[in-house]
Design a protein around this nucleic acid. Structure first.
Length: 426
DNA sequence: TCTGGGGTCCTAGGACCC
DNA sequence: TCTGGGGTCCTAGGACCC
């Protein structure tokens, strides 16, 4: 048995914790560069502000309804998430943090408990500890717990808790759920299913397995089994190291100069190197991409991508920046209005794996002593940045001034920066 | 003026091996 | 008339998730 705890309108709820005046008001949170809606309060949904829709198209609506608009404040949301997860950890022997606002709880053997009461206690405790409202769904499999959670959210009469365990409960829940709302069924598969007269989760659960295998492959078969109460998605207790790491941003304004693009790429490469070090990993393939607006006229569109592999996996900022800048050289074209760029690192291995013998490349001295020093330098850099703030110490080419994403409605980092709190007080 | 930023898994098909 | 029968590895692309 599993429970899925999901924070309600998480980013909006985070903003409301620190600004109670936002309660009962329509509130939205925008994506990076203040582009799209990525979180909406119930009031904002009711007005017709859609998930993922570009904000500039709804400017009238926003003004008309006095909607409170915020730039995404991931420092705040990440910290609030950690507090929610810490609270949930006390409620089950094992938990899986599935996303920034969702957590699966292992409820194996919890059948003898009063689950309804227990779920409400979870809600009460998270609310008291963090101020964040959550919904709880309980089912025999993760997919059923997901479905239950959706019901809890959609039906206010349930008080934020939904349990689908008995056969009639499961039957009724699946019958009421459209296929496109099943976890693991996206737009494409939903369209295919509807074309074959499979409209509800119940229809899908009883569809012929060979047909599902043929058209939705093994992942679709698993979803089907999960709906039928057979668990095939176990709780993932340890997160395996990432296989790819990507840092990319849309620019606050169009960038045309090679130099500013270099600054951006150096910044993204530095972030990737830092993320690698946080994971205890190293990468040996670096991919750089830069693109002009994909909404521009056809002749003004451009997207360049270049990958460079290095002979020895690394998480050294200086090396990755150097390699990324070289990759950028080969894709930069004069005369385009660049709107976005990014760096991706892959072919990732663990720090613990034995190193290959170095080759004399990239004019870096590969002697073990120098590598050792480079590692120590990165440790020192990370320690200083952790203490004094990201970006305190960085390579000179890592410069955000020319291209920085728009963040015009950013709230203070209430829980992670003293300086931001002092600002609030002032 | 203005449209996010991350990830995962699976499959098909080609190159290559003996 | 007829043209083997296994494998593995890699990559691109398509689906999905938040």
């Amino acid at each position: 048995m599993y429970a899925l705890v999901d924070c309600n309108n998480f980013y909006v709820s985070c903003e409301r914790v620190f600004n109670p005046a936002l309660r009962d008001r329509p509130v939205v949170v925008l994506s990076n560069n203040d582009g799209c809606f990525i979180a909406r309060s119930e009031e904002a949904k009711a007005i017709g502000l859609n998930m993922g829709a570009p904000a500039f198209k709804s400017r009238e609506l926003l003004r008309e309804h006095h909607v409170a608009v915020y730039s995404a404040n991931f420092a705040l949301y990440g910290d609030m998430s950690a507090r929610v997860m810490k609270t949930l950890d006390d409620f089950a022997p094992d938990i899986e943090i599935y996303s920034i606002d969702e957590c699966f709880l292992d409820f194996s053997g919890f059948g003898r408990f009063d689950l309804e009461k227990y779920a409400h206690e979870i809600r009460r405790k998270v609310r008291r500890n963090t101020g964040i409202p959550v919904s709880v769904g309980i089912g025999a499999t993760k997919t059923l717990a997901k479905a239950a959670n959706r019901m809890a959210k959609k039906n206010p009469a349930l008080g934020g808790v939904s349990i689908i365990l008995s056969q009639p409960q499961v039957h009724a829940a699946l019958e009421a759920m459209a296929v496109e709302h099943i976890w693991g069924i996206g737009r494409q598969y939903a369209a295919l299913l509807h074309n074959h007269y499979i409209h509800t989760a119940l229809d899908f659960a009883s569809a012929p397995v060979p047909w599902v295998q043929k058209n939705l492959h093994i992942t679709g078969v698993r979803v089907q089994e999960e709906l039928n109460g057979q668990s095939c998605l176990p709780l993932e207790l340890v997160r395996s190291p990432k296989q790819t790491i990507c840092t990319s941003r849309s620019f606050g304004r169009a960038v045309t100069s090679r130099e500013e693009l270099q600054h951006a790429v150096a910044h993204f490469a530095s972030r990737c190197a830092f993320k690698l070090r946080t994971e205890g990993s190293r990468a040996s393939l670096i991919t750089v991409f830069a693109s002009a607006s994909s909404y521009a006229d056809r002749e003004q569109r451009y997207r360049g991508t270049q990958s460079v592999s290095i002979p020895e996996a690394s998480s050294d900022t200086m090396l990755l920046v150097k390699v990324a800048e070289r990759a950028l050289e080969s894709i930069y074209r004069e005369g385009y209005q660049y709107k976005k760029a990014g760096v991706m690192v892959s072919a990732i291995g663990s720090n613990c794996e034995p190193e290959q013998l170095s080759l004399l490349l990239f004019d870096t001295d590969p002697s073990p002593a120098k590598q050792e020093r480079a590692g120590q330098l990165m440790q020192a850099v990370d320690a200083l940045n952790a203490r004094y703030g990201t970006g305190t110490l960085r390579v000179a080419s890592d410069n955000v001034s020319g291209w920085k994403s728009r963040q015009e409605r950013l709230s203070p980092r209430y829980t992670t920066r003293w300086s931001d709190i002092l600002e609030v007080k002032a």
